[in-house]
Design a protein around this nucleic acid. Structure first.
Length: 494
DNA sequence: CCCCCCCC
């Protein structure tokens, strides 16, 4: 991951700076000290390097592997002092931003002569002029077009798409739409399509590490701020780990699970989870229990962007969590969740990895798929009594794609009354809408079908290139030919 | 700390 170390940081610290919280890289770590165990680091700002003593309370960071050779760290509390006529940096507190990183730049050992010539350290981490951000388009919350829409969708302006190898930018450029080879692409925010085509010049990528999180104005200036409560830097979700002290992430909610109550040997309680995606494509599940549910459940809305900090990281249980992250965040009462009211076009609404329906034929039971197809028929919602005695809604529809296969899609719960209802109304008047299913779960009861789970999302007539291709295929005759891979062909109105 | 994702 690309990182910009703070330019001139070493010289600035030698010149007395104690406030800049620079990003530096750890080039080396040595255990020293005779009476007390102590670590000496060699730190670099990519141009200059210098030795630094680690405060002993941070020894565990080295021992647990939370910081190692190559790590990019943010110095939080530090001071340059002279020991035996040599200047040395003492690191009192720091955060690991990236655990592993190639050596950045070609740092040379810092010398005093440079210190006299030191320039003020630019506050490079407090803002990035390259950053393309903050489209003012309101947050629409979903891609769905209104029911009254004829089913036609507006093809996005092709000039805002980058169908070549845009991997260099990692999808960070909000105007970039990476549809290269893997079949994975990141659905841009709708506002992206209306944005001017800026930043494709190769100059506009921004470092992965983002500016420090500033608390909302109404929480500022409420008495003195303790030094260790200074704003945590926003880091990529992909860089989160349990050994990190303070962190903040800025991410969009891509899915929100229902509030569930449980009763087990440990007692009873309530729980809900939601899924996050950030501008670097990192994803992670967040879970809240009991009092924390009360605190955050109503705040969290799908499609909105939040600044989140002070949660704890636990290993993700892969059997219950399909997100690409080995960790899961548990929020606590001290955690903060702050809505970012301004739309951030750099964070996609979803990342898709569409697979042809024909692939599901041989897919493992319970595997998770993203599919996109044309809705051929929609059955009415029916109440289903669950084995635990709770009633829920079920609605089955039939989805067909260019692979020439169709499949039953089972909507559960609220999906029946929201998207399901809308889809039924469209099909009832002869419109065959495009439906994208994010994170559907494969079921193999008598043939294959796919069902919604709490992480699922449905998009009706989305403005994706795939949707456009599908519609064309459909109009050219795809409408009339397909083979179902589900147990019964849901004979519909076509 | 949950862990349900449902039905035939």
């Amino acid at each position: 991951m690309p990182v910009n170390l703070t330019p001139n940081a070493i010289a600035a610290i030698n010149g007395g700076d104690v406030n800049s919280k620079p990003l530096v890289q750890v080039l080396d770590i040595k255990l020293i000290g005779s009476t007390q165990e102590r670590y000496r680091l060699l730190i670099s700002d990519s141009a200059a390097s210098q030795h630094a003593m680690l405060a002993t309370q941070l020894n565990d960071r080295v021992k647990t592997g939370a910081v190692k050779k190559g790590s990019v760290v943010q110095l939080i509390d530090y001071i340059c002092s002279t020991v035996q006529n040599r200047k040395i940096i003492v690191v009192l507190n720091m955060e690991t931003i990236l655990l592993d990183c190639e050596i950045i730049g070609n740092p040379k050992m810092f010398t005093e002569s440079e210190s006299t010539a030191q320039k003020p350290m630019p506050n490079a981490n407090l803002g990035n002029p390259m950053r393309v951000n903050n489209f003012s388009t309101p947050n629409s919350g979903n891609y769905s077009t209104p029911t009254s829409n004829s089913g036609a969708f507006r093809a996005p302006n092709s000039s805002t798409f980058n169908t070549s190898n845009s991997g260099t930018f990692g999808g960070q450029n909000p105007s970039t739409f990476n549809t290269s080879n893997s079949g994975t692409y990141r659905a841009p925010n709708p506002s992206t399509f209306k944005a001017p085509n800026v930043g494709n010049d190769g100059q506009s990528f921004r470092p992965t590490v983002q500016p420090p999180y500033q608390p909302p104005p109404n929480y500022r200036n409420h008495g003195p701020i303790l030094k260790n409560e200074a704003a945590a830097r926003i880091i990529p979700i992909a860089a989160l780990n349990p050994y990190q002290g303070r962190w903040a992430i800025k991410a969009r909610v891509t899915a929100k699970g229902d509030l569930r109550r449980y009763n087990n040997a440990r007692g009873d309680g309530k729980v809900f989870s939601f899924d996050l995606l950030d501008s670097d494509g990192g994803e992670i599940r967040v879970t809240c229990f009991n009092a924390v549910v009360d605190r955050f459940y109503d705040t969290i809305e799908v499609g909105k962007v939040y600044l989140i900090s002070k949660g704890s990281l636990k290993p993700a249980r892969k059997d219950f969590n399909h997100l690409k992250n080995e960790w899961e965040i548990f929020l606590e009462t001290t955690s903060t969740v702050d809505l970012c009211p301004e739309e951030d076009g750099s964070i996609p609404r979803q990342q898709f990895s569409f697979r042809p329906i024909s692939d599901i034929e041989n897919a493992e039971n319970n595997s998770i798929f993203d599919v996109i197809g044309i809705v051929m028929s929609v059955n009415p919602s029916v109440p289903i009594m669950r084995k635990n005695g709770m009633e829920t809604q079920r609605r089955i529809l039939n989805l067909k794609d260019k692979s020439g296969r169709s499949i039953e899609v089972t909507l559960w719960g609220e999906f029946c009354n929201k998207e399901g209802q809308k889809l039924q109304e469209m099909v009832d008047v002869g419109i065959f809408p495009v439906l994208a299913v994010k994170a559907g779960k494969v079921n193999d009861f008598s043939g294959k079908s796919i069902g919604t789970i709490s992480s699922s999302q449905l998009f009706i007539n989305p403005e994706f290139p795939e949707a456009h291709d599908l519609q064309e295929w459909f109009d050219r005759g795809g409408k009339n030919a397909s083979v179902s891979i589900s147990r019964e062909f849901t004979a519909g109105v076509f």
